[in-house]
């Protein structure tokens, strides 16, 4: 199988390109996605390949982008809509909540809402306000959405391909901090990674660490660091947050009896709470220690240099691992 070395953002562009070549009903719309190839270059080359009919720079309106994408999906087109930063999705939330997530239900399957809403998400690039939001929980909470967060170039391509082919509205959140952080071998041909399956990034027997997106790398670093102290940590990258791979989460916990959940998003109401509740329901009697949450603080996202204190880092994750093992 031929492979190439890609960054995560290049893998995103490749998935879009491949799906548009494969299926002429796939189109791309958003702000600056065309000629400029997107502010992060996540759609580089797509306009040149497919032209202005299928790659459309829209007026600056997230309400319009989300609303038009819903209508496009109803018409039989498969739109990929880019929101320039996930924080700007707030303007389109009414469209997404009141329509995208319910179109299939309210029309009893007559009109599915097969669309992908892509957005660079999460912090770590020292950008202005609303450029660092981690808002996955609000989408997971609303029935009808699928929510996907890749953490590697290989997964970004395969998961985006699957998302474009999925008949439900998929919120595809791209961790922009690691858009260009590293390269990875990615198959040149098209492939899909099923939505709803977590990936065990590191096998271990002492503690399970559940995470996703850009937090996967510091979590793996922390796991390596504690290995020197003889702690064997398992790292589970959820990849899809809705539907969550409950089976993999529960099985890992049954094996280790200890858990740490790591996410960038604020603590209160965050998905760490959901995962903890799942473990209480499904595997309470396997539990050996209180479950630790390593999350962003419940703060309005602090900007620029203060971001350092908001985002979980390897040191905090190591502390949490040690805390659950000290019990």
């Amino acid at each position: 199988m031929a492979a190439e070395s890609l960054t995560l953002v290049e893998a995103v562009a490749e998935a879009i390109h491949d799906e548009m070549a494969l299926d002429e009903s796939v189109i791309l719309l958003g702000e600056d996605v065309g000629r400029s190839g997107g502010v992060f270059r996540a759609t580089e080359g797509v306009y040149d390949a497919f032209g202005p009919e299928r790659v459309i720079d829209t007026p600056l309106s997230e309400t319009g982008i989300a609303g038009a994408a819903i209508g496009l999906a109803a018409s039989g087109i498969r739109p990929i809509a880019e929101i320039q930063f996930s924080g700007f999705t707030y303007a389109g939330l009414e469209q997404l909540y009141t329509r995208a997530a319910r179109l299939n239900a309210r029309s009893r399957g007559q009109f599915s809402c097969q669309m992908v809403l892509r957005a660079p998400f999460g912090g770590g690039v020292r950008a202005p306000d609303l450029h660092g939001e981690s808002m996955e929980a609000i989408f997971v909470h609303h029935p009808g959405f699928k929510v996907v967060v890749p953490s590697t170039p290989h997964d970004a391509k395969g998961l985006l391909t699957a998302s474009i082919r999925d008949p439900d509205p998929v919120i595809f959140l791209e961790p922009k901090k690691i858009y260009r952080a590293f390269r990875e071998e990615v198959p040149e041909e098209s492939y899909a990674i099923p939505i709803g399956e977590a990936a065990v990034r590191r096998e271990g027997s002492d503690v399970s660490i559940f995470t996703w997106g850009s937090m996967t790398r510091p979590t793996l670093s922390a796991a390596e660091a504690v290995a020197e102290d003889g702690i064997d940590a398992e790292v589970v990258d959820l990849r899809t947050l809705s539907p969550m791979d409950r089976e993999t989460i529960v099985e890992s916990f049954k094996k280790t009896g200890r858990a740490v959940v790591v996410h960038e998003a604020p603590r209160t109401g965050g998905l760490a709470g959901e995962i903890t509740a799942l473990l209480q329901e499904e595997a309470l009697f396997y539990q050996k220690a209180p479950i630790e949450r390593v999350t962003g603080w419940d703060a309005v996202y602090p900007l620029y240099d203060l971001e350092d204190f908001q985002l979980p880092n390897a040191a905090r994750i190591e502390d949490a691992i040690k805390a659950v093992l000290d019990e």
Binding site: A68, A73, T98, F111
Partner: peptide
């Protein structure tokens, strides 16, 4: 499309719908 309840939201949706029909 099904009735909307959030008034006004049908406007850009109809635009998208007709955009899609035109593309096809």
């Amino acid at each position: 499309m099904p009735h909307i309840v959030a008034v006004g939201t049908q406007v850009p949706q109809t635009v998208g719908l007709m955009w899609g029909r035109k593309l096809q």
